[in-house]
């Protein structure tokens, strides 16, 4: 699988392959520029899709970003396909305000370890199954329940 993929430089191939593989789980795809692919999935499917890209496409986990939106925190997994393929697959998922939890990938792939800690402390998203949810960037005496990267954060302590 990987050998075949390694030479594959056409972004449409990846879009089709993922759609084929996951079917209904893919809610939406976008392809605004040649090298940028955005895939929207439900939060329960996100780890599966990301791991698929990581292992099957030899995708490098560039980073994950959290974005605070009115509905909740969007998490984007930016997966870079190297070896001259020049493609970024961004798996996007929404963690709704009612249930700030998502399954951890860091427990399986160490590349996701730190960024999940960071998103946890800055956005308050809980990564289920992550072994080590200590503070990464903030001070040890940082008050609980204050998530500075949320839009409604006020420094009142």
């Amino acid at each position: 699988m990987i050998d075949r993929i390694k030479e594959q430089k056409d972004p449409n191939f990846y879009i089709n392959d993922i759609k084929e593989r996951f079917g209904d789980k893919i809610l939406d795809t976008a392809h605004p520029r040649h090298s940028r692919i955005y895939i929207l999935v439900d939060k329960k499917d996100a780890p599966e899709v990301v791991k698929y890209i990581f292992y099957e496409y030899a995708g490098r986990h560039s980073i994950s970003s959290g974005v605070d939106t009115p509905d909740g925190v969007e998490i984007l997994y930016h997966m870079a396909l190297d070896n001259q393929r020049n493609i970024f697959i961004n798996v996007k998922t929404l963690v709704p305000r009612e249930d700030f939890r998502i399954e951890s990938i860091g427990k399986d792939i160490p590349a996701f370890d730190w960024i999940e800690r960071e998103i946890h402390e800055l956005f308050g998203v809980e990564f289920v199954g992550h072994p080590d949810m200590r503070h990464l960037l903030l001070a040890d005496d940082w008050p609980d329940g204050k998530y500075p990267m949320r839009k409604d954060f006020r420094r009142d302590f």
Binding site: H61, S62, I63, S65, G66, V67, D68, P110, A111, D113, W114, I115
Partner: peptide
Amino acid sequence: PYRHKVRAPTFMNLPS
């Protein structure tokens, strides 16, 4: 910007 995420190389290299 509405959101600007920065990831520096050391962030990925340090855990190794």
